[in-house]
Structure formats: C-alpha cells, structure tokens
Amino acid sequence: MTTETLKTDDGQLTIWFDGPAWGDHAKVATVGKCKFPSAKAGTRLLHQAAGKAISAGATGLIGPMEGDTWHSYRLVSDQGTTKPFMMEPTSGPHDQQAFADAGFNIISSYFSASVPMSELPGARPHDTDAFTIETWDGTDPDGLFTQVHDLSCQAFANNPFYKHISLEDFLAMYRPVVPLLKQDLILFARNADGMLTGFLFGIPNYADGLNPKSVILKTYASVQKGAGHWLSYQFYVNAKAMGFDTAIHALMHDDNLSAIRSGLNGADVFRRYALMGKTL
C-alpha cells in the first residue's frame, strides 16, 4: 500500500492512497492511525490529508480506516461505560469532532452488544443435511486461516468498502493470535462434499485478564443458507460448556442479519461506532 504520514507538534495521521470502493468514487483514499490532542488540531490535519488525497487523484476520503476493512477502522461514536474488549477499535476523545469539523459525515454505523449466557443458546435450529458443523482440531493454523481467507473473500465481496486482501497479508494478521485461540470457539460448516461453506471465529475476551468470563463472537461468514444460524448456536453451546458467562457480539453493522439475530437473542448494546466519509 502507498501511504504517507503527516506528523506535527500537535498530532498525526496516516493516509492510504489506495483505499476500498465507496459509492461512485473512481478513487478513494483513507486516513487512520489518528492522534489528535484537540479537535482543532485534528481538523487541520484532516484538511491537509484531503489536499494530498486530491493531489493523488482521489475523489473520496474515508476514515478512520487503516487502508481497508481487514485492518482497524471506525471511531467510537458512543463510548458507553464498559471497558474496551479485545481487538475492539478505540478512538481519541477528539476524533469524532475533528472529522465532523473537517466536513466528514457518517457513512456507516455499527455497534457491539452483550448478552448473558443464561439466555443462550436459544432454540435449536432445524436439522439439515445441507451441511455439518465441526470444530477446529487445533492443528495446521496456516491451513485453517487459508480456508478462512478464501471463504471470507467470497462471502464479503459484495459488502460495502470491500477490498481484496492477499493470503500472505491475511496470514500475517492472524498468526499472532494463534496462541490465544480455543478450538471449541473456531467452527466450520461443510457441505456433503467437504467444502467449506461457513465459519465462525470466536475468542475469549482476554482484555478481562488471563481467565476471562466473557467470550467474543468476532466474525462469521457463510455462503450456505442456514449455516450462520447453526454456527452461532453451536458457538453458544460450546462457550457455555467452557464456563463463560457473557457473550459479546462484536462490531456488527446496524443493518445486517447478525445485528437482527443479536437483538433476537436479547443482547444489550453497550458501544456504537461510525465510519466517516467526505467527497473531495
């Protein structure tokens, strides 16, 4: 990725000049790694970033986003009262105001919610012959994440702000967390031919310490109708058996199916996030 960091005595940010697709824009840049000691300083840096993006041919600028949605993106728009969970994006107290004052608007909204395990897993989905659910056997993590990469690229290709990521870059992101993974929280759906049709990635919330009582449903994807429902059901069954008392539904888009299912499971929203955009 082509990047440039702007650093002054009162703040810094980084620009990625080859950002993801956004609407009708022919070329989009992103800004991330923002450190704004004040809204005024952040606004000034964002104006400078917009000027550089225009010079590079961009017609749209979005942020906070470290190049694409595979990496850190979004700012916290409603902090709530709970402490951050593992892998949760954070932002400074002046970030949202700085983006707004620099002419950015909210272009996508997200939330995280929690639900007591006592209220899960809910009704068992209907049995099906279309796929089977299995847990990771704990071996060959590169093989695991290669399968996850391939299905992710397929399942997320039509999502807003999608940008392809190479297998090498994808593995580089996930290898550091391998020692933290628990086999029973990594689930797959496979069809009768053994082909991967869905996956769910969960992880204990180690932000609570070495023996956390909350577990994060981080990501799931499916190209098979009904697989997502079964994956989440089995995740809750396994997590409950492991002794977790709270499930965190992490970073869901306001409009997607997982958000609807979270609400049906009785989850309470504890944090909100926003992605900001500006036409140049």
Rank of each mutant, 00 (worst) to 15 (best):
D137G: 15
L144D: 09
D142G: 13
Y73C: 07
S109L: 03
I107S: 10
T128V: 03
K83T: 15
I107W: 05
L75H: 07
Y73W: 13
R124G: 01
T128R: 00
S91V: 05
W136N: 10
T139N: 13
S114M: 07
Y110Q: 09
T69E: 04
P64L: 05
T135E: 11
G103C: 06
S77C: 06
Q96Y: 04
L61I: 02
Y73V: 02
T139A: 15
H126L: 13
D142Y: 09
W136D: 09
G80P: 11
F156P: 02
S109W: 00
G138D: 13
L120Y: 04
T139V: 11
P116T: 12
R124W: 00
P64D: 04
G57F: 04
I107H: 08
P125N: 08
V148G: 10
N105E: 15
M65I: 04
G80R: 10
D68V: 03
L61A: 04
A123S: 14
S118V: 10
D101R: 05
F99C: 00
S77L: 02
T69F: 04
G103L: 03
G143Q: 11
A58T: 08
L120A: 06
D101C: 02
T139Q: 14
F111K: 11
S118F: 03
P84V: 12
E134P: 01
S112W: 04
T82M: 14
W136S: 12
L75Q: 10
T128W: 01
L61H: 03
F145A: 10
D150G: 12
G122I: 03
I106C: 07
A102C: 05
D142P: 11
E134N: 07
S114I: 08
T146I: 06
H149G: 07
M65G: 06
A155P: 01
P84G: 11
V115P: 02
I62C: 02
F85L: 05
T69C: 14
G67W: 03
S72N: 12
A100K: 11
V76R: 12
D142A: 15
G67Y: 05
G122P: 01
E88W: 05
D137Y: 14
A113Q: 10
S114T: 14
T135D: 07
D142F: 09
P116Y: 07
R124Y: 02
G122K: 06
F85D: 07
G60C: 12
A113E: 10
A155C: 03
H149T: 12
P125K: 01
V148Q: 06
A130W: 00
P89R: 05
D142I: 09
A58P: 02
A58S: 11
H126V: 12
P89E: 03
S112A: 14
G122W: 00
G67N: 11
T82D: 15
F85A: 13
L61E: 01
C153Q: 15
Q147A: 12
D137N: 15
D150K: 14
G92R: 04
I133C: 10
T146C: 09
D137F: 13
H94W: 03
S108M: 11
S72L: 11
Q97I: 02
A157F: 02
T82H: 12
A123M: 07
S77D: 11
E66K: 13
A130H: 01
A102L: 01
W70Q: 12
F99E: 00
Q79T: 15
